[in-house]
């Protein structure tokens, strides 16, 4: 990191743009026009030019990689700067609530509980925004290990049991009994996807009559995870929109239903980073089924990048 003066963010972005333009020009190649020539000296010139180009290209790529690393360092710094005050706030409130810095009466406690839940809310938003920025910078990586997907889904479902209970919503889980479904996944990132889908389902079902069903199925070479709810459903024209950034069904821009409108966009990207695919089927007024497919073996992404 200390190999040269750290440039400003603006400088990095500007130079990245310039380099990309040069690289594009190199790749489209003025030398290509010589290629069709039968003139042997032209072919020789072409050879020399392409060797030079190769060297230049290698140097350019090295420079590009270096700059994009610096660019993601900025992101890491902002991430640190946002999370540190949140961590301090959270721990300060927790210490009071845990009674470690003296007694506090019920009224004070009630206010602090509000503060605490809003710190968590703010933390979730910061996480979404940073994940989105990391995705855009190509910095969000998945580290895959073989996991039992049925267990992952069950684990995630369990964390929603108490909030489902409060809302009197029924949760159920179905899967093939005969087999265990393994897939190479980044455990924490897939849990993040599941948390998002279960959280959404819970948000959109009616208290007292909500049913959320999770299913893990096998589909030649893929594992299919479905989360079905009998909530308000999604209008046809909103179906694509729900996966777009800062969008939610039934509204223009973010937040008719709270949150950033980033959760599903991030979930979809995470699934795609695994070589999978995500979608939804829904009937407006009756409910929605969000699903995603994960490849059971490590293999290349299907054509889509």
């Amino acid at each position: 990191m200390s190999e040269e003066r750290r440039p400003s963010y603006e400088e990095v972005v500007r130079e990245l743009e310039e380099l990309k333009a040069v690289l594009a020009a190199l790749q489209s190649g003025q030398a290509d026009t010589l290629l069709g020539s039968s003139d042997s000296s032209a072919v020789e010139i072409y050879r020399v030019i392409s060797e030079q180009q190769e060297a230049e290209r290698t140097e350019l790529i090295r420079r590009l990689e270096h700059l994009s690393r610096i660019k993601s360092d900025f992101l890491a710094l902002v991430s640190h700067e946002l999370r540190t005050p949140l961590a301090i706030l959270q721990e300060a409130v927790n210490l009071i609530l845990d009674g470690l810095v003296g007694r506090c009466d019920e009224g004070v406690k009630a206010c602090l509980v509000m503060a605490q839940s809003n710190i968590l809310r703010l933390g979730a938003i910061v996480n979404d925004l940073l994940d989105m920025a990391a995705l855009e910078a190509g910095r969000l990586k998945v580290t895959k290990e073989k996991e039992n997907i049925q267990l992952l889904v069950e684990d995630s479902l369990k964390t929603f049991q108490s909030s489902a209970g409060e809302k009197q919503v029924r949760l159920s889980f179905e899967t093939g009994k005969d087999a265990v479904y393994y897939a190479p996944v980044d455990r924490n990132r897939i849990l993040q996807v599941l948390t998002n889908l279960f959280g959404n389902a819970l948000k959109f079902v009616r208290p007292g009559e909500g049913i959320i069903q999770a299913r893990v199925l096998r589909e030649n070479g893929w594992i299919r995870i479905e989360i079905e709810d009998n909530g308000c459903g999604i209008r046809k024209e909103d179906k694509e929109k729900v996966f777009q950034r800062f969008e939610q069904a039934g509204g223009r821009g973010p937040a008719p239903a709270g949150g950033t409108g980033l959760g599903l966009a991030i979930a979809k990207e995470i699934v795609e980073l695994h070589g999978g695919r995500m979608g939804v089927s829904s009937e407006y007024g009756k409910g929605s089924t969000f699903f995603f497919l994960l490849p059971t073996a490590s293999r290349e992404l299907p054509d889509r990048q």
Partner: peptide, 15 residues
């Protein structure tokens, strides 16, 4: 290096 966070951690750990 965040002095406040360090202080809060101290309270928690000492308790």
């Amino acid at each position: 290096d965040e002095e406040q966070l360090a202080r809060l951690l101290e309270i928690r750990l000492r308790a």
